[in-house]
Nucleic acid binder design. Structure first.
Lengths: 276, 276
DNA sequence: TTGCTCCTCACGTCACGTGAGGTGGC
DNA sequence: TTGCTCCTCACGTCACGTGAGGTGGC
């Protein structure tokens, strides 16, 4: 019979750990003195402790270890648990390696003096959106804001309210002869969108944006006509962090559109997926 | 001014998260209604939230992010934090990859039917130990227990008590002409050990075992003369888990030495280090 | 008046670590 | 009697999630 200190030393665990294992029913002492509450362990129990520690070394949680050691777990179930744990670990290793790479990129930036980048890129998901939209040809692009306001005015006329921020949708084509297209889109309730489209003689379209699982997002402060540098930063980030732009629509979300152009704030989102 | 729900949606975080950030002082709302307690955020604050999320994506903790964003942190300090975090991550990735490999080995075992191995190997450290020891030549090896008892008897005669379990130390030599040596060692207080050695006419030696950082440990149940299979299991584990046996002494720790030989329990420890 | 939005506690998570305060056996 | 060992709470960790119970504005 070993006192807790000696048993702890043999297993190289703390006494607190042993009390914890007792409390959760993972490893009960062989004998507990009813008067003093002193816990006593046998050498034989060291094998149990070893098994527990070995399973813990695989990264299993104590709840799982209780199932394995104290409840008759079928080999299949054990296999399943191990496979699950393995998959979890592989997932984690991957995200951690990505974090390492991102930190590396940051450190590179830091060495080049741009110590605190004003641009922060994060990944988001995009929910599906129903909107009314208006296509704008490349030559009209400098008037896009007028078109947006016209569309809003039309909506107001029919008593339809936007349910989210105004969107700018960019479509780029592989075909070099075809210029990229721009749409202005305003999210509205689906039924109202349909009604408006029917009344509009064709130049207002129904726009149903699907959900996009990963969007690389950056905030652009300032005039929406001077996004070049911001787009470049976003593009560089996507490349250095090993993402690829997918075929879904690129978006600008006009978050703030009051006063001077300099005060505008636009969130730019590129649909991406992990490369390889 | 955005209500918390809208701001949360823009940043793709939960409202609870925003309240949490407020509480810990990471991101305070621009305005809080003194009557209702309602939190209001501005679009501008979305940049702050983006920065927070970007830093969180690097795996930094909120306390660190507070330092970076809300306290003027020097670029050097920031670099230091990132380097530290990177090192941590690399460490974790390594241990997780080892866990994956160990689980893989387990799964292999399971497929070959040996569903719940009785042998569990874990890694330990060995503390430095002072002991009195007795060398035993290979021809005397079957009498090792008699020597152990003789040594204990001698100690008792001088009123010296062992302070830990009896050890068997094995030394293997590269030189094939030299047979491996065995020592019996009994941990005692250093001063008493010295005294005993002086009185013993030379056949009792002072044995000072250094600390060993990593020992691969397995429990052997049964006669200490039939350890072959156990040693083999331990050896296989060490190899499949990419460890190498180092030059320190291998040990048997006689944990239970009562009654029949079948009831003996011995912990066998091989000093190892990670390969490569 | 009825929903709706938002609020503030309070508790749980996971595997212990760290005291505080108290007790039996030498 | 004095240490020593062990005991049982209780609280903290980390970044929130999940109710419970309550309130202002339409």
């Amino acid at each position: 019979m070993l006192k807790i200190r000696d048993f702890a030393r043999l297993g190289e665990v703390s006494m607190v750990t042993l009390r914890h294992y007792d409390e959760i029913g993972l490893l009960k002492p062989d004998y507990v003195d009813p008067d003093t509450g002193y816990r006593f362990y046998t050498i034989d129990q060291l094998s149990q402790l070893h098994r527990i520690l070995a399973l813990k070394d695989l990264g299993l949680g104590l709840a799982q270890i209780i199932k394995i050691t104290n409840e008759g777990l079928s080999p299949q179930a054990l296999q399943g648990m191990l496979r699950l744990r393995q998959a979890e670990l592989q997932q984690r290793v991957q995200t951690e390696q990505e974090q390492i790479a991102r930190i590396e990129a940051r450190l590179q930036d830091l060495e080049q003096g741009c110590h605190m980048p004003t641009y922060e890129i994060i990944l988001k998901t995009a929910r599906p959106i129903t909107a009314v939209s208006r296509r704008i040809s490349p030559v009209e692009i400098t008037h896009k804001w007028d078109y947006a306001n016209a569309l809003l005015a039309l909506m107001k006329q029919y008593g339809i309210k936007p349910i989210d921020h105004l969107l700018l949708l960019y479509e780029e084509f592989e075909d070099e002869n075809r210029e990229s297209e721009l749409q202005i889109a305003i999210p509205v309730e689906r039924s109202k969108a349909i009604a408006l489209v029917e009344k509009s003689d064709g130049y207002v379209e129904l726009c149903e944006l699907p959900a996009v699982p990963i969007m690389a997002s950056i905030l652009h402060h300032g005039s929406p006509y001077t996004t070049f540098k911001t787009l470049q930063v976003l593009g560089t980030w996507i490349e250095t962090n090993k993402y690829t732009i997918t075929g879904d629509l690129r978006r600008g979300i006009s978050l703030q559109r009051t006063g001077e152009l300099d005060g505008y704030i636009t969130e730019i989102q590129f649909p991406v997926k992990k490369s390889l």
